[in-house]
């Protein structure tokens, strides 16, 4: 009984002094430090541990893998990323071009326009498969991680820089070119038939 009382008083004393130590240690604020820093874990033992988020941010590596970004000028609209995506969050609408549009920065020929290149970040599971399969490495993950938006629609990022009118125009050009080609083909066939 008395042993109990003494051990209780002792343990209460230990606990109370521990909390008192923390109460007065809280004068020290946490230093916002990268996880690479040597005392990243050591400094958590003293002072308060709060990071006041919008004012203070933990440094993240430059090559962080958070949000997706597409450099649309380098995209050849091959649709591989949309096919590999496990959650189907990439939506691409391609328009064929009758002739070469241009070259990407690594020299791949571009033959398709991206009328639509939408990535729904609300669906994205950050697996990074799309960045692996991309032949021109135009789809990448950036170190931006704060994705809070007031409306869900805003999480659908539109990377295509083509306006609807321009897309229609390109579509028309391709159709005309197709039609011209078809006509030329028909004419050639007719000629052939006539020649027989």
């Amino acid at each position: 009984m008395f042993k109990n009382i003494i051990s209780n008083i002792k343990t209460i004393g230990v606990g109370m002094s521990l909390t008192l130590k923390h109460l007065f240690a809280s004068k020290k604020r946490r230093v916002v430090d990268s996880v690479k820093s040597d005392n990243y874990f050591a400094q958590q033992d003293k002072g308060t541990n709060t990071i006041q988020y919008p004012m203070q941010k933990l440094p993240v590596p430059e090559v962080g893998r958070y949000q997706l970004f597409v450099e649309i000028d380098d995209c050849i609209v091959c649709d591989l990323c949309a096919k590999v995506c496990p959650v189907d969050c990439i939506d691409i609408d391609a328009i064929k071009s009758p002739d070469l549009i241009g070259l990407t920065s690594d020299g791949s020929p571009k033959r398709l326009y991206a009328a639509k290149f939408d990535i729904d970040m609300a669906k994205c599971m950050y697996c990074g498969l799309c960045t692996v399969v991309c032949p021109t490495e135009c789809i990448t993950m950036t170190n931006q991680y704060d994705v809070s938006v007031p409306e869900l629609d805003l999480l659908t990022y539109e990377f295509s820089d083509m306006s609807a009118e321009l897309a229609d125009e390109k579509r028309k050009i391709f159709e005309e070119a197709q039609a011209a080609k078809q006509a030329a083909k028909l004419a050639a066939m007719k000629k052939k038939e006539e020649g027989q």
């Binding site: 923390h22 109460l23 809280s26 709060t50 006041q52």
Partner: peptide, 13 residues
């Protein structure tokens, strides 16, 4: 504030 400091938080700021 006291609870926050004891638990190494900041409390209302």
């Amino acid at each position: 504030k006291v609870s926050a400091f004891i638990q190494d938080r900041l409390g209302p700021t």
